[in-house]
Design a binder for these strands. Structure first.
Lengths: 335, 335
DNA sequence: TTGTAAGCGTTATCAC
DNA sequence: GTGATAACGCTTACAA
């Protein structure tokens, strides 16, 4: 493998001149530039990014820390991140934490050791630990999707509380009085906010007594299980609210297996839409988050921060949620 | 940030001794080891991976080059890769080529510059260019999902030809005589093989005259469009074969929009299953590939290659395809 | 516009 | 067991 020295020798210049040509930094006469470029081409020279980063302290790498790429919501986010990052000349490292704080910590440590320029983090838990850990090491972070209390930090997310409120309000307006929430993990801020929105809508409608919340992981099997429990309860719910896409799919499966028809016998609403590429007949009434855009905006914010273009103070970007009414929420009626 | 020198000074040893303790290489007396470890803890020393890699020529990083993370098939592959890689202490860089050879080339260049230890490649086109490019730079590659002609190389994939053959055979056995193939891009080896399998089944059944193949990208909109074209054709097909999941979903939408019932009026079979986490009522009869395992096996193979444990000669791992019969293929009948 | 010298933080090599 | 030295390939700081 030829080095910058080899190129320099062949072009009859100093290594630093080659460096200048490669990076378009500093001056270089038309002719010198030409000679260097020829030498590079002839030798098939490829700069060693490691050496460059060691010296310059910049790796042109971003880290994306999400809980599970298998969830289409995070898939879209990650696509938004990768597109934006690569367009700016950055590569993306990624990992799945599976909602485990331990894994999260391990990965963050790795990534910081790799000297990534910035981190996009979907924090598993609502504690400032991870963020503080990153900031101590002097790296830039942007929080994605979820909140963390007591830290000044750039963030991009949707208003989960408002989204959940709108969904529940919709159910109440259609006559539902007994709505069960199939919640996510207590640790995730989005899960907390969605339950808060549920609660607000229920309480406002004077239905506080009917409040009924289950908690569990953001998985299909949890949705299935919680639904089974909810159905066994008396009085039976007339509507279900799934706190994310996986939970709702699990709920739908449980209802199917119990022979309960949606929306005729029970209504279902859900957080998160599935991408249209994956569904032939969209059926669920949902609060849809612009996942791709979230990834995009977060990456732009991070890149601006890195280039020093962003204003000093922290930015919180709250993207709008779209309520998409489909069949699963059923018609207006009296219960 | 403390360096290895600071630790060495504090522990009263040479930097190389610290290095030995950190990496568990070479000897170090119990006592020295202790002193070094204390110093490390006291200073909060974190090794600089960049410097280490520059010297050692190993980055503990793998690159995953896929066409589109948004496709659940590749999502599962990527999860298999990441799980396996991280368990072995490797981080994963990834990118989406969108079936573009140009993007592929750009990303490969980046990744090779970053000195990744190995690359997992889903080649956009069936040409040896990319593979040769990588091998010239001395990096290890494992081919994933798709073939490339005229190169000796490790590879993990499924037998697309056989899978397609089995699907078409199933349709023929149910009485279908006019089956249209909604193919993928001509450049992708999997698309080629699936059409070859289609052709073999059709020909074997003496239906060569009814062969009818469309080509287009592996997207939903292509599936939609090709289906519209196929329906306009006379005689009308009694069955459709979608060459991948997106194409088939597009086909299903086109059929729905045309008011044509599946499987009553037309049968549909498809390559690739959707993960059970995403579908409430699986409907399509499919040739399902073990995507997660493919990622896992490919990564294991690559890691073995890197550690020199793999045998000299190249390995081709062909994983079994499962034919899952559901409603979309309909019952046996005469046409 | 170009070059010199030094150093980024590690580890390979060889010596003791 | 431990250490001195050089080197990995590049860029910053300064000089000409």
């Amino acid at each position: 493998m030829p080095t910058i020295h080899d190129v320099a020798k062949r072009a009859g210049v100093a290594p630093i001149t080659v460096s200048r040509v490669i990076n378009d930094s500093g001056y270089a006469s038309q002719e010198t530039r030409k000679r260097v470029e020829t030498a590079i081409a002839e030798l098939g020279y490829v700069p060693n990014v490691l050496a460059r980063s060691l010296r310059s302290k910049r790796t042109n790498t971003l880290a994306l820390v999400i809980t599970d790429i298998t969830n289409p919501f995070f898939t879209s986010i990650s696509r938004g991140v990768e597109d934006t990052a690569s367009a700016a000349g950055y590569t993306t490292i990624y990992c799945n934490t599976d909602e485990s704080e331990e894994k999260e910590k391990k990965y963050l440590q790795w990534f910081l050791q790799k000297q990534v320029d910035g981190i996009l983090l979907v924090p598993a838990h609502s504690t400032p630990d991870s963020v503080e850990f990153i900031q101590e090491q002097g790296a830039s972070v942007v929080l994605l999707d979820r909140k963390v209390p007591n830290v000044e930090i750039d963030a991009v997310r949707c208003d989960s509380e408002a989204g959940a409120y709108a969904l529940i309000k919709l159910l109440i307006d259609r006559g539902h009085r007994y709505i069960v929430a199939l919640g996510g993990p207590r640790e995730a801020s989005t899960a907390q906010d969605r339950i808060a929105g549920y609660r607000r809508a229920i309480t406002e409608a004077g239905l506080a007594e009917n409040e009924h919340v289950y908690y569990g992981p953001f998985t299909q099997s949890s949705g299935y299980e919680l639904t089974t429990q909810a159905l066994a309860h008396t009085p039976s719910p007339t509507a279900l609210f799934g706190a994310n896409n996986f939970i709702s799919i699990g709920a739908m499966k449980a209802l199917r297996d119990s022979g309960i028809r949606v929306p005729e016998e029970i209504a279902v609403v859900s957080f998160d839409d599935l991408p249209p590429t994956l569904v032939v007949d969209p059926f669920l009434t949902v609060a849809a988050q612009p996942a791709y855009q979230m990834g995009q905006k977060a990456t732009e914010l991070l890149l601006n921060r890195l280039s020093g273009e962003a204003p000093q103070e922290c930015q919180e970007i709250i993207l709008p949620i779209e309520i998409i009414v489909r069949q699963s929420s059923g018609p207006v009626r009296a219960y």
